[in-house]
Simulated scan of single mutants.
Amino acid sequence: MRDNPVEIIDLELAILIRRVTSANRKIGHLDRSAYLLLHRIIAKGPAGTKLLAEEFQLDISTVSRQTAALEQKGYVYRIPDPLDGRAYSLQITDLGKKEFLEHQQARIELIGKNLEAWSDEERQLFGQLLRKYNRSAVTT
């Protein structure tokens, strides 16, 4: 492999995703989609599947399937839309919040261990660059 920065980033992202996915299986009950959906609802409040699909750039059917699994586990519940009887928003339950916070804490502890030898400046820069990449990422 040459020193092409994009090739290096491609490989390193693939390794990062593999490691995070593997670690995620060992630390809790939430898969990546559940973690992200619950995080979104905690951070921004109740949301319908259409809005969630738009925000995550996914098909409504995919988000519907993911949120149905969360509802089945008792992590979210439906709030009917008073203006449209067919529509609803999803709100997190106490159980969903508990599961999310425990899972998040385990993830943070693991990431913290992996970054122990890094300086505060390196951690800060890494976080900023990941945020910048994720905000500029184009999906096909």
Rank of each mutant, 00 (worst) to 15 (best):
L16C: 10
K97N: 13
W118E: 07
Y35D: 04
G96W: 14
D10H: 09
S89V: 03
F56S: 13
S136M: 03
Q104S: 13
N24H: 06
A23Y: 08
R86H: 09
L110Y: 14
Q124G: 09
N4P: 02
N134G: 15
S22K: 15
A23N: 07
A87M: 10
Q104G: 04
K44C: 00
D84S: 05
L115G: 01
A47T: 08
T62C: 10
Q57G: 08
L30W: 05
T62E: 11
S119I: 06
T49H: 09
I111N: 08
G45E: 00
A14T: 11
D10C: 08
A47E: 11
E122D: 06
T62A: 12
A68T: 02
G127C: 09
N4W: 03
Q105W: 11
R65H: 12
V63G: 00
D84T: 03
Q128T: 08
N134P: 03
D59C: 01
L16W: 13
K73N: 09
R40H: 07
F100A: 00
K113I: 09
S119V: 01
R107T: 03
I60K: 13
T21E: 14
T21L: 15
E99P: 09
R2V: 04
M1C: 02
I17R: 00
A23S: 08
F100K: 08
I42A: 14
R78Y: 00
S61Y: 07
M1S: 06
E109H: 06
A14E: 14
L16G: 12
T21I: 13
L30A: 04
H39V: 05
Q105L: 13
E109F: 09
R18S: 06
N134R: 14
V6P: 02
G74R: 01
K50P: 01
R19Y: 11
M1N: 03
Q104P: 12
Q91G: 10
D120T: 06
A68R: 07
Q105T: 13
D84A: 10
A106L: 00
G96D: 13
R86T: 04
I111Y: 09
